[in-house]
């Protein structure tokens, strides 16, 4: 990214998070922030605690120590669906789509937090329920256009190839119109072309929908190209934090990835 990008205040601040499962320390004293509008990467070797970090942000895990500040406010211990309502969406490392539903329905489910018609209105399909359904369909169709998945609109997602499933999952997260989007290895298992497409979608989503994105990825080329800032974890500790160039030249990071000679 050549042009200097500037960002607003932090949307999410993680302060001194420690998480342990029994005697296993998954995260130790981690602090970093995510600024409004940026693409933030979280990298690290296997088992470094990246996914645990996302699970903490998501509310699946509750850390033993530390605070999370979201959108300028300290967050209490909330359930994942309440956190979704506050504006955090996410995709999973191993696809977690609703396999029995069509692409369209998966995306419409992404709109769940924005829909409010009551059960009686829905039972009659009349008034608010129908209006709401059409209105959100419009919004979902924009995302379908954006991701170029028009042709699979009504296909049950269980039948789609892997690459498309990943794309639909991104669509479902985008449909939530969240303030912060967490992507857990959006490019895992893809071929080069699919990766390039996915990169384009992520950058465009960041650009067009003003979504702040935090992503975990193992493909270093992708990480260095996409992200504005990178945080590096290893064994549950923070190794480095900074722009891709800074991180690339950080000796501790190089050691963690390539190993250190003990000679």
């Amino acid at each position: 990214m050549d042009a200097q990008r500037t960002f607003g205040e932090p949307i999410l601040e993680v302060k001194n998070i420690s998480l342990a499962f029994g005697g296993v320390k998954a995260l130790t004293d981690i602090s970093f922030d995510i600024l409004k509008g940026e693409v933030r990467a979280i990298i690290g070797p296997n088992g470094a605690g990246k996914s645990s970090m996302l699970n903490v942000i998501n509310g699946f895990y509750h850390p033993q120590q530390g605070e999370i500040w979201f959108d300028g406010q300290k967050r209490q211990n909330l359930k994942p669906f309440q956190i979704a309502k506050q504006g955090i969406a996410r995709t999973f490392q191993n696809i977690a789509l609703f396999k029995g539903m069509s692409t369209l329905d998966n995306l419409m489910t992404g709109r769940y937090i924005h829909m409010h018609s009551n059960i009686f209105s829905q039972a009659l399909w009349w008034g608010k329920a129908e209006r709401e359904e059409l209105q959100h369909r419009q919004r979902v169709e924009e995302i379908i256009d954006f991701l170029e998945i028009q042709s699979i609109r009504k296909t049950p997602v269980g039948r789609l190839p892997y690459g498309l499933q990943k794309r639909v999952e991104l669509g479902r997260a985008l449909a939530a119109e969240s303030k912060l989007l967490l992507l857990d290895e959006p490019m895992a298992g893809m071929n080069l072309e699919e990766k390039e497409d996915m990169c384009r979608f992520i950058l465009d989503a960041n650009d067009q929908f003003d979504t702040t994105i935090a992503l975990i990825e193992h493909d270093m080329g992708v990480v260095m190209d996409l992200s504005d800032r990178v945080v590096v974890l290893d064994y549950g500790r923070k190794l480095a934090d900074g722009s891709p160039d800074e991180v690339r030249n950080n000796q501790a990071v190089v050691d963690a990835y390539l190993g250190v000679s003990h000679a």
Binding site: P80, A84, L97, F98, T109, A176
Partner: peptide, 10 residues
């Protein structure tokens, strides 16, 4: 279909 994903979506 996927209760964890359902919860994450709200």
């Amino acid at each position: 279909d996927m209760d964890i994903a359902a919860e994450i979506i709200g």
